[in-house]
């Protein structure tokens, strides 16, 4: 027998009416023990700007006040003039930038021609990056171009910035690479 939902409602309605007549005379409503506490209730709230596209949506970051300070939730900031609380799927997944078991927690290094990645220390990695950047930059630095105009640039280094940087981090980053003389500075989110 095929029963449409509408028919279903009629049938259950009828049986309910039958029950009402028979009435048992005492309240059987179950005691609902759903402690509906927001997971963000005791969290610290900080505002930020979504790191992905150029729209620049505002978001609220809820972080734990209990010691570890980890991110509990990130959602759209209803007071933000651009997105008024909304976020697309990328923005809605912002908390995964920090709370994700697949995240790398240490710098990894693959030597030239090597097939494997190895864990290295931050100290070693930063020193090595600084050394190599300095070497390439010094070797390729142009003070003047062919027309004898002062350019102070290097065209041997290109920066493709990470989408995972927020507005302020991006500013600091581009200020640093421009100080080195880079002219090819691009941001992944715009590509």
């Amino acid at each position: 027998m095929n029963v449409t939902r509408r028919k279903f409602i009629q049938i259950t309605g009828a049986s309910a009416a039958g029950l009402a007549v028979s009435g048992l005379g005492f309240d059987l409503t179950p005691i609902k023990s759903h402690a509906q506490m927001l997971k963000t209730k005791y969290a610290k709230e900080t505002t930020t700007i979504c790191c992905y596209c150029a729209v620049g949506c505002g978001a609220i970051v809820h972080t734990s006040k209990k010691g570890d300070g980890r991110v509990i939730n990130i959602e759209g900031d209803p007071d933000h003039v651009i997105n008024r609380g909304s976020l697309c799927s990328k923005g809605a997944a912002l908390s995964q930038l920090t709370e994700n078991e697949n995240r790398l927690l240490e710098p990894m290094y693959r030597a030239p021609y090597s097939k494997k990645w190895e864990k290295v220390s931050w100290d070693w990695a930063l020193t090595e990056i600084a050394k190599r950047v300095k070497k390439t930059r010094d070797a390729s630095f142009e003070h003047k171009n062919a027309k004898r105009q002062v350019v102070n640039r290097t065209t041997d280094i290109v920066s493709i910035g990470s989408s995972a940087l927020d507005n302020e981090e991006c500013w600091i980053y581009q200020a640093m690479v421009r100080a080195l003389g880079l002219v090819y500075v691009e941001h992944q989110a715009r590509i």
């Binding site: 939730n73 990130i74 959602e75 976020l87 799927s89 990328k90 923005g91 809605a92 997944a93």
Partner: peptide, 8 residues
């Protein structure tokens, strides 16, 4: 966005 926000 809804699908991801729900999961989140």
């Amino acid at each position: 966005g809804c699908q991801v926000a729900c999961k989140q």
